[in-house]
């Protein structure tokens, strides 16, 4: 469990830096093209990691697992990332990035429906607080976007 939390915390820092870089990189670039450049460079990184550490596992991947990976690629990269970059271009990172805080709610709902996971009281409280924070941010009309 604790290693999972450490990895999640590192991912949190990485995503934060990525958002910052996207915000600057999007200036003068079509969001869809920006997403393509970003996804392709992510792919190159993963290609290097797989070639070095998991060459056998790549060949022996189960067909069902392969299909889940395919679904993940379409939902996360081909759809979500393009939509997110478009949102960044329209409303700015200061507004859009905090909106992603509602993601746990959807993840929890889908996890309960599909995986049968049960969040406890504290987790539910944490999600509610995250949403409250987001509402405060969304209500702010003084965020300038150039």
């Amino acid at each position: 469990m604790s290693s999972g939390i450490i990895f999640a915390s590192l991912a949190l820092c990485g995503f934060g830096c990525s958002t910052f870089l996207v915000r600057i990189g999007l200036i003068g670039v079509i969001p869809r093209m920006a997403a393509t450049i970003s996804v392709a460079s992510s792919c190159l990184l993963l290609l290097a990691l797989v070639t070095i550490f998991y060459p056998k596992e790549l060949v022996s991947i189960e067909p069902v697992g392969f299909l889940w990976a395919l679904a993940y690629g379409i939902v996360t990269f081909s759809l979500a990332r393009v939509i997110l970059y478009t949102a960044f271009g329209l409303a700015g990172a200061t507004r859009v990035a905090p909106i992603l805080s509602v993601m746990p709610i959807f993840a929890a709902i889908f996890a309960m429906i599909i995986l049968g996971e049960k969040p406890n009281f504290l987790i539910i409280m944490g999600i509610i607080l995250s949403v409250l924070g987001m509402i405060l941010i969304l209500g702010d009309r003084n965020i300038d976007v150039e």
């Binding site: 996804v39 792919c43 797989v50 392969f66 990976a69 690629g73």
Partner: peptide
């Protein structure tokens, strides 16, 4: 990697 490859 599989996900990113096909998405790319």
């Amino acid at each position: 990697f599989v996900a990113l490859f096909f998405a790319t």
